[in-house]
């Protein structure tokens, strides 16, 4: 066990570094692969081609550009809160990634109430968005911030309820154990695939992904940003590296939510344990999974965030009353039904 042999400070350093990588790497890949390239191909154009081979260095060029820009704040803005807001959003992302397990021992923390924690910290970003919207002293920003808050509160609920199904089925809120459960379980006695919850909790998965789309304020739920209408909503006034932070937070959160979705529904870092004759109950998972696990996780994350981006680039956006109606009248009843069904089946089997 690698982690045990290291002194505490080294472990902490590793975790901080790992956390930074786990936030920035998905953000970078998602931006380059999906935002730059996939979107361009969908729109019959090439995307960035100048910086580096196939424009692969474009991201660094963009970051450099943003860092050079002047850090502007509107005259009437509440400067302190205005400057703080993007950081709050980014902090939420970092707190979120802390709970994701990447391997049998490759995790930042192993919370007992991991799922609960994840849902709790994801709501902090709402605070940052409200702060940004209000402090910009711009009516568009305020409207955007208020819309964002309303939307995030509305979609927090179906997300919680969708996750509850998984929690009931797994019987634990610990994300690490949810992964182990999915990979060591069997479907009606057949253990060739383990039991990834996407099969049994498909409704939950669909609701979770829709809610994630809304939490990330991606199209079709991008009413708070609505660049053709609210001129980017709560981000209207931001420039330079503060905008960059919003930008990183947006895509990093997309990555982290994809990671969480793959933990909850796709079997996380694991491969079905029966393939290697592992029995997680006695901790027999091999050490090399600590290296292979993150790679598996990243792969699953790319697939899920690919879907998120795909939807984003193809759909028009909801109006916010339609969006609220969809959350309260469709998603929440369906997810409640899902919980009921899961509970009944759990007791029955």
């Amino acid at each position: 066990m690698l982690a045990v042999d290291l002194p505490y400070w080294a472990q902490s350093l590793l975790r901080v570094l790992g956390g930074t990588v786990a936030v920035l790497l998905p953000a970078g890949t998602i931006v380059y692969l999906f935002l730059f390239k996939m979107m361009s191909f969908m729109q019959s154009r090439l995307g960035p081609m100048e910086a580096g081979p196939y424009g692969s260095m474009q991201l660094f060029a963009e970051v450099g550009k943003w860092l050079q820009k002047e850090d502007l704040a509107p005259d009437g803005a509440d400067k302190r809160i205005y400057r703080m807001a993007p950081l709050v959003v980014l902090v939420s992302t970092f707190l979120l990634v802390a709970v994701v397990p990447f391997g049998p021992d490759a995790y930042f923390t192993n919370f007992d109430a991991g799922v609960f924690y994840m849902l709790a910290v994801s709501s902090i970003s709402t605070l940052g968005i409200l702060m940004a919207g209000w402090s910009s002293a711009n009516k568009y920003s305020l409207l955007g911030g208020l819309r964002a808050a309303g939307q995030l509160i509305a979609y927090e609920l179906p997300m919680v309820l969708a996750v509850l199904g998984v929690v009931i089925q797994a019987g634990t809120m610990n994300l690490q154990q949810i992964v182990v459960k999915q990979n060591s379980d069997s479907i009606f006695g057949w253990d060739g695939l383990g039991n990834p919850y996407i099969l049994t909790q498909f409704i939950g998965f669909a609701i979770f992904m829709i809610a994630v789309q809304a939490e990330l304020t991606q199209t079709p739920f991008d009413m708070p940003i609505a660049e053709s209408e609210l001129v980017s909503g709560y981000m209207t006034e931001y420039s330079g590296f503060r905008f960059l932070i919003f930008f990183i937070a947006e895509f990093a959160t997309a990555g982290v939510f994809s990671l969480i979705a793959s933990v909850l529904f796709l079997g996380g870092w694991g491969v079905p344990f029966s393939w290697f004759g592992w029995d997680a109950a006695t901790g027999s998972v091999d050490n090399w999974m600590n290296v292979a696990g993150p790679i598996i996780m990243i792969t699953k994350m790319m697939v899920l965030s690919g879907i998120i981006m795909w939807v984003r680039f193809s759909y028009p956006r909801f109006r916010e009353d339609q969006l609220q109606r969809f959350a309260w009248k469709v998603l929440i009843p369906v997810s409640l039904l899902n919980i009921m069904l899961t509970a009944i089946l759990k007791v029955a089997f």
Partner: peptide, 8 residues
């Protein structure tokens, strides 16, 4: 499409 948020 752009006015309604669909960029493609």
């Amino acid at each position: 499409g752009v006015q309604l948020g669909a960029v493609t």
